[in-house]
Design a protein around this nucleic acid. Sequence first.
DNA 1: CATGATACTAACCTTTAGGTGCGTACTTAC
DNA 2: GTAAGTACGCACCTAAAGGTTAGTATCATG
Lengths: 136, 136
Amino acid sequence: MSVQQPQTQSLSAQLLRGNLFAEQCPSREVLKHVTSRWGVLVLVALLGGTLRFSDLRRKVSGVSEKMLAQTLQWLEGDGFVLRKSYPVVPPHVEYSLTPLGQDVGVRVQELADWIEHHLPSILQAREEMNRTDITK
Amino acid sequence: MSVQQPQTQSLSAQLLRGNLFAEQCPSREVLKHVTSRWGVLVLVALLGGTLRFSDLRRKVSGVSEKMLAQTLQWLEGDGFVLRKSYPVVPPHVEYSLTPLGQDVGVRVQELADWIEHHLPSILQAREEMNRTDITK
DNA sequence: CATGATACTAACCTTTAGGTGCGTACTTAC
DNA sequence: GTAAGTACGCACCTAAAGGTTAGTATCATG
């Protein structure tokens, strides 16, 4: 482990490339949006196609309007979600994934699917832990 | 979209199978551990092999001892991390991934890698958003 | 003989994610 | 005529994530 960085691997270059292990790397923020409690659900939901605000609210059960709005704004800001609003009398807004968003969406869904399918194993592991809880 | 569930798809059965879109589904908690700020980093770090506590602390820059300990306990509780402690005079504890943990770890790493590699596109999308910020 | 490393825990404090209304401008349904 | 739906913004509040500091027992190093 060298203290001095060879080849002038500057901080900025490191950050542009994205390095999760480095503090203050912007990718950590993106990751936070994507892996946020509702970010995951929204991305997966939108993989199924365009949805309106209240459709999303119904599909992602348990989310509050405030959090849904904020999550959508995060994801829009990162270029993952496309917001299309029609200036009609009862508000009408459609949300969909950009190509970039579909890309992340797929990875996120794979992770989510894995967890869903392996839930039994996980819960079982948890119980075994408790039984073997000699802890000493 | 039927309101009535056919075949008595009971709530418990639904939950055992894992359904992220359902509130109170245990998988949401597992997801929270895995996608927590430090959970991601720890899983990816341990994919590289067994590490001791302070190795992890150094590798995952920015994490506090408290959070690292807590994250490791979450992941151990879910059966992803194996903790092996040697009762010697200066404490010696080794952390590694269980087979289950390596499985999730891979998915998480794929997501992390994707973000790292696409950071430039994301940051660019962000700037374009700001320039096109007619907002109207 | 005073640090420092090790792997934590307990206590305390701050920050932020997230929740709960309330309001809106207009329409459709009851 | 009143209630509900639409897509939020605003203000206020709670809970949980996260940080900071101190302490522990023992050994190796300076």
